[in-house]
Amino acid sequence: MNVLAKTLLLALASLPLLGAYDRTENIAPQDYQLFEELSKDLRCPACQGLSVWESDAVFSNQIKDMVKTKINAGLNREEILAFFTARFGYWILREPPRRGFSSLAWWLPLALLLSGPLLLWFFFWRRPQVSPVQGMRSVEAIIAQMQQELAQQRTHQSPKN
């Protein structure tokens, strides 16, 4: 049903899937790369997981037009992103901002990556060897024990013979 929920959402997303968007229109060739980068940083408001660059939904095309307008007005990358976050909130960015509560999303994985080896060391490598207790025993241990018992039997029996 995961799949289905996804397709339902996508079906909703594709509702306004009405047509082409000429990405090279109204943008100078030297600004095209900036336009592409910015469009890949902004989310498609109507889709799940896509950027406005990847989506042809009407809303996405409007945002792409806005990006072009801002680039042509001479704004730089940070100013354009600031414009969009001021207008739509941080929600419009495809990754969480690196300050405030959202910075947790960035720090937690890093903390985990750094502290993980320490935890492993603490729980496994640092620990002294476990003393033998009952539970699973290795084949080698069983065989060794059996051979020992056999040898004992032999030493008991051999004088009689």
Binding site: K40, D41, R43, G49, L50, S51, G89, Y90, W91, I92, L93, R94, E95, P96, P97, G100, F101, S102, A105
Partner: peptide, 10 residues
Amino acid sequence: KQRISVQAPY
């Protein structure tokens, strides 16, 4: 109460 997106770039 702040809505944010976490998508592919993250």
